[in-house]
Nucleic acid binder design. Sequence first.
DNA 1: CATTGATTTGACCAACTGGTAAAACTCACG
DNA 2: CGTGAGTTTTACCAGTTGGTCAAATCAATG
Lengths: 204, 204
Amino acid sequence: MSKAPNPTRIQKKNRAAILDAALEIFSTHGFRGATVDQIATEAGLSKPNLLYYFPSKEAIFNELMAGLLDTWLDPLRSLDPNGDPLQEILSYVQRKLQMSRDFPRESRLYANEIVQGAPRLLDTISSDLKRLVEEKSALLDTWMAAGKINRTHPKHLLFSIWSLTQHYADFDVQVRSLMGSEDPYDAAPEFLETLYRRMLTPRD
Amino acid sequence: MSKAPNPTRIQKKNRAAILDAALEIFSTHGFRGATVDQIATEAGLSKPNLLYYFPSKEAIFNELMAGLLDTWLDPLRSLDPNGDPLQEILSYVQRKLQMSRDFPRESRLYANEIVQGAPRLLDTISSDLKRLVEEKSALLDTWMAAGKINRTHPKHLLFSIWSLTQHYADFDVQVRSLMGSEDPYDAAPEFLETLYRRMLTPRD
DNA sequence: CATTGATTTGACCAACTGGTAAAACTCACG
DNA sequence: CGTGAGTTTTACCAGTTGGTCAAATCAATG
């Protein structure tokens, strides 16, 4: 987007290495806690060499964030108005859980940013994310009105899904420390399936 | 604990101001993101003056953490083996939610630390917290075995409570941004009550 | 294989950060 | 009101950090 339209082989490789290294470092130390030197070393480059590919620390962070949000919201986007309501939500929960398992660094990067007040992300949240949430809340509302799922506050329902699934990535060190040798992801899918099935199955 | 046994009036006031300022700054910027100068300014002191009361940045942080964990785990500790199981859990959830509302900075301070791998807290987690979690998981187990509440994985149940309640403090900026003018805490108590009642009420 | 553009490096800088030392000031108490 | 402990400030330092620049090296094209 900002770099040359014809990236060389080396450019492609190094920019990818830098972004991967930055994801690792930013997600475990936050923006201010991360140093350009750390990222460069992790990427196998010298600091000035890294700054040959990106104009600044903040530029790296922004590019990372832009790429992140897109894939991050994919599961929610694909909530299908034409599918079976309960099944759609249960699948969404499982996909979201799978993302926590597969991309924990992305989850922690996001968590770091939000916990600290989202100084570099608030605009995106209150425009793009808000639009998507409004759309999907409305969908949930129609499902509830039609009696397909139990009536609750749709936004709180979405928050709960995010919270429960991302917890396994964001609080990974605590979860694992408390579960000992047991892998958290062994029981998590069934736990969440049960929880949301009981929560949402219409009754009486 | 480490300071003089007979704190003067000024000492009491300034140490309290420093700890409050530190909570504010650490919880919004993380340990590395916070500067001693920021904390001092927030507390209405000069940097050297602050360092007259605490030997180092890390000492402030540690004192904050020590105080935090104690009150943080109080609600879980008071889960009563002799109470009504479902009511005990529902009360625990509401108490925990109340803490998110009343002490969001404490919650975010903790979140910051865990997300970043708990470098200064892992020992406490895997000793004190682990012991408490083992004890309360066992209690939940007996309640499940006795058919008082629905059978699930007790540790995942605890994680879910932490995750759902702390989410309102830790992701406050996102939650509020998406809820517009509606106060998240208006609907949250009922949402969580419904969720856990449905999840835990024994059936057939 | 030469040359030119792409890449990498070493030396460097200004701003910032955590922390120190000693002088200056303030306050409670006799 | 003087005096000494308690408190605050001024000046400072050494290490770190984000970022620059020119020189050196590398790679692909003709």
